[in-house]
Write a protein that binds this DNA or RNA. Structure first.
Lengths: 130, 130
DNA sequence: TTTCATACACACATTTGGGTATGTATAGCA
DNA sequence: TGCTATACATACCCAAATGTGTGTATGAAA
């Protein structure tokens, strides 16, 4: 067969047609970020509650993720001056606008993830892992 | 103010109410994965086209991401036996089911990302970076 | 015969992610 | 006089993620 190059029209970046998409990916295309937002989408939570409900997140990652989300205006942090300390986290109105995205992701997981497992098994049968 | 602990009912993991959500996050809550899926959601693309349209992805990451997506059954890889090589990538029917999620993310970015920038500036004004 | 094009693989270096361990402050309880 | 509970901060360290640079195969065009 002969080499037939394809004309390189339309080689401008699709991602840049939506100028904020790239930055949005940097923002929320992250495992811990989605997990935290998802839990908070149900109700206000304290730090320890978040940690328990996410289950396998370390303090460090939880703290960092919460700080980032606060900085980006997606969650609010409310500190009560008590001893021992008490801090409550909740979604801001801006954070609430992400619920659509979270829900569609969640729905997809229940509807389609099993097919992913099937595909994996098949792939590994053909391309056996080393 | 006195310390008033909150009763710890309902401390079972919310994330585990949707048993596949956690694994779905491991799968698609990733910058490069979303970028590749997004570009492929428009049409079949060759390797080089993907690289150009994503813009700042290295070969290594593009190749790895494509392999992962293929293994998970989300994209198809079609090799043409020509010289120099030609490979086409496209979404599988399963991959197509992610379009809802991709679209909601994309919509969110255009509708709300500017508020994120505002929140950041404000946060940095109050908590000046070191 | 030299260069180019394409889609990688692979080795190496570096950056980042993320775990663990420890510190802080203080009221209340034993 | 400790010890506990809470929500972190901070520092240290290892492992994983990712970038960079180079190599490969082979026909065609210059």
């Amino acid at each position: 067969m002969k080499y037939m190059p394809k004309p390189k029209i339309n080689s401008r970046s699709l991602l840049d047609e939506h100028p904020y998409l790239r930055q949005t990916l940097d923002l929320i295309a992250d495992k811990w970020v989605v997990a935290v937002l998802y839990v908070l989408s149900h109700s206000t939570k304290r730090y320890g509650e978040l940690q328990r409900e996410i289950g396998n997140i370390s303090q460090r990652m939880l703290t960092r993720t919460l700080r980032d989300l606060e900085r980006n205006g997606l969650i609010e942090r409310k500190v009560y001056p008590v001893v021992p300390p008490m801090v409550e986290y909740s979604l801001t109105p801006l954070g609430l606008t992400l619920n659509r995205v979270l829900k569609s992701m969640c729905d997809w997981s229940t509807e389609n993830f099993q097919q992913v497992e099937i595909a994996r098994d098949e792939y590994d049968k053909v391309n056996p892992p080393i």
